[in-house]
Simulated assay, not measured.
Amino acid sequence: MADGKLRRMTFRKNARILPVLFAAPLLCAMAPGDMSVAAFLVRADALERLGPLALATPQGHQLKGEVIAAGKRYKARIDADRRAGRRTTSCPPESGTLTPDQWLSHLRSYPAAARNKISVYWAFDALMKKRYPCPA
């Protein structure tokens, strides 16, 4: 009887781990900045409960890394367009600040139905277009 109870407990424990194991290859294959807005917000909402300590967690570092990677990809693209003489999608200053509240507010402005289809990178690009439009 105890053996059957142990098997059920082990199965339940493994059943909770299986979705994580199946998702791991997908998450590892994604480039930084490719996380969907929906996934980012789910993780950010869970971390917000921790308050200022959230950034000290591994999950906080991962989310911060997503935003930094999106920013670096964006800057590389803008710089490449400028070097090639192409018109850029936005005209940001060389340096600037973006608070977590501004970023999360922008992400939450997307309709819930669209959040799965938009990556953090494209959301970053859209925010830069909105904040730093090029003069006509």
Rank of each mutant, 00 (worst) to 15 (best):
G85C: 01
R108L: 12
R115A: 06
E94P: 02
G85V: 00
D125E: 13
T99N: 05
P100C: 00
P111N: 09
L47S: 10
L107I: 10
R131H: 05
I17Y: 00
S36R: 09
E66A: 07
A39W: 04
L127A: 10
F124C: 03
L26H: 14
S105C: 06
M128L: 05
V20G: 00
K117C: 05
P133Q: 12
L6E: 08
A2I: 10
D3T: 12
V37R: 07
M128P: 02
L55Q: 12
D81T: 06
R73H: 13
A29Q: 15
D125P: 00
L50K: 11
T89N: 12
L21V: 11
M9L: 15
S109L: 02
L47M: 15
M9I: 07
V42I: 09
V120L: 05
M128D: 01
M128T: 04
A136I: 12
G96A: 03
V42L: 08
K117G: 07
N116F: 11
Q62V: 10
A70M: 01
L50G: 04
R108W: 13
A39E: 12
K13S: 14
G33F: 10
D79V: 00
A46F: 03
L26I: 14
W122E: 15
L107P: 06
K129V: 03
K13V: 14
C91E: 06
P32V: 07
N116V: 05
E48I: 02
L50C: 08
R73I: 05
M9K: 13
T10Y: 07
I17R: 01
D79S: 02
P52C: 03
P135T: 05
K75D: 12
A44P: 03
S36L: 11
D79W: 00
P32F: 09
R82W: 04
T57Q: 05
P52F: 08
L107T: 10
A31M: 14
L98P: 05
R12I: 13
A113V: 04
D81V: 07
R12Y: 13
A80F: 04
V67Y: 01
R8E: 15
M30D: 02
A69C: 12
R87N: 00
A113C: 04
V20W: 10
S105M: 02
R86I: 02
